[in-house]
């Protein structure tokens, strides 16, 4: 699983790079979304245990031996929560972009300098 962790890390780096260098506001939101996804991948890979299966105790998993057969359910829970929050926050940011675009008819972040300090 180290490969997956590394890939998630690379995704986070790409996202931060995108947020810092791009001028188009939609691309900045995309960068944020990439960071979000990278963190989810890392969290899931932390919970994964090699050769074990999903924490659902149906016919495939023996209830008595569940401790030896399932992966860690807690990171999955955290990621499920984080995905929904990420969706809401991304939607909110895109709506900010729509609003700013309506205001000045420009997608470039340099044209919206009123709050710069």
């Amino acid at each position: 699983m180290q490969l997956i962790t590394g890939l998630g890390f690379v995704l986070i780096i790409i996202g931060i790079w995108g947020m810092l260098t791009r001028k188009n506001m939609v691309k900045i939101v995309l960068g944020f979304s990439l960071v979000d996804t990278g963190i989810h991948i890392i969290m899931v890979s932390i919970g994964y245990i090699k050769g074990k299966t999903a924490p659902i105790l149906n016919e495939a998993v023996n209830k008595a031996k569940a401790l030896q057969e399932v992966v860690d359910p807690v990171p999955s829970v955290l990621v499920l929560t984080a995905i929904v929050i990420g969706l809401a926050v991304t939607a909110l940011m895109l709506v900010y972009v729509v609003r700013l675009h309506k205001e000045k008819n420009s997608m470039q972040i340099d044209d919206h300098g009123e709050l710069e300090w």
Partner: peptide
């Protein structure tokens, strides 16, 4: 059955 649901 689904432990993730039980926790959430």
């Amino acid at each position: 059955q689904n432990l993730v649901t039980a926790i959430i």
